[in-house]
Design a binder for these strands. Structure first.
Lengths: 143, 143
DNA sequence: CGTCCAGTTGACGTGAACGTCAACTTTTCG
DNA sequence: CGAAAAGTTGACGTTCACGTCAACTGGACG
């Protein structure tokens, strides 16, 4: 099992990031590659974490937020109080993500609707603004 | 229907953003409030757009990407070629968002699993690292 | 041996997305 | 009427997430 280590170059190729990015993530304590002399060697754990980092970014999380999420995956070796704290952060994050899922579905519906509209435009039949109206619904009535 | 206009202050209260942010979005042509003298007045349309802007941000889209998406909602008054271009961008965006939905579900599963693990830790029964293993799955086997 | 090549550490630069502050002009209200 | 509140336009500052460049080091190879 000695050979599940990756050089920085291999990492960059595999994940489509630059060396700078990986070093940056290490500086921010998102990754913790081991060293062979001065060379970084990325473990299986680093790879799993990088995957989560990139995923988190796609959802608009900041690196700091992602770092806190990653802590969760290292929850094994923590004190009870810190563990409790981490747990609460995770609960909150889950709530956010579930809300986000709802929104994503909404956004996709909107987009579908607009696509249909634009398709109708492109196919000649110029329907004036029916889908438009749907996109501009009354939101909240303003207290 | 003269009174479905909002001042910048009302907008800030309703959407929890700062004036600076709204002016910034206007400068970037994401919003186009009308003017009463020098005062901005935000229309129903602006409100709908702002809602989409904030939503987009939560999914990690840049303001520029969001601007392109908003164009879709104004697709009525475009030239055929530009309309085609807009349409393709939208198709691509839809694909991205669907992929994102998949990932979000994956991420939520991971998180659920970790939550269960941390709960087991907190409730005393210290299971060593079973869920951990799940988080560190072999990803891609490295070409 | 020299010379690539991949890697390293600073250090400074950059674009995005605002924050902050100054200076000024209305609006509103007791 | 006059102060406070709300708005305006610059203009500069800041934070995040890296990009870029210089200068250096340690192996690999003909």
């Amino acid at each position: 099992m000695a050979e599940d280590l990756r050089t920085i170059g291999e990492m960059c190729a595999d994940f489509d990031v630059t060396p700078r990015t990986l070093r940056f993530y290490e500086a921010k304590e998102l990754l913790a590659p081991i060293r062979d002399g001065s060379k970084r060697l990325f473990t299986r754990r680093d790879r799993a974490r990088l995957k989560l980092i990139l995923r988190g970014k796609r959802f608009g999380f900041s690196l700091e937020e992602i770092r806190q999420l990653l802590e969760l995956y290292d929850a094994g070796d923590q004190q009870q109080t810190q563990l409790q704290r981490t747990y609460e952060i995770a609960l909150q994050r889950r709530a956010e993500m579930e809300a986000q899922r709802e929104e994503l579905n909404l956004a996709l519906s909107d987009l579908e609707e607009q696509l249909a509209y634009v398709e109708s435009l492109l196919s000649g039949k110029g329907i004036p603004l029916p889908a438009h109206a749907a996109a501009y619904q009354p939101d909240r009535p303003h207290a």
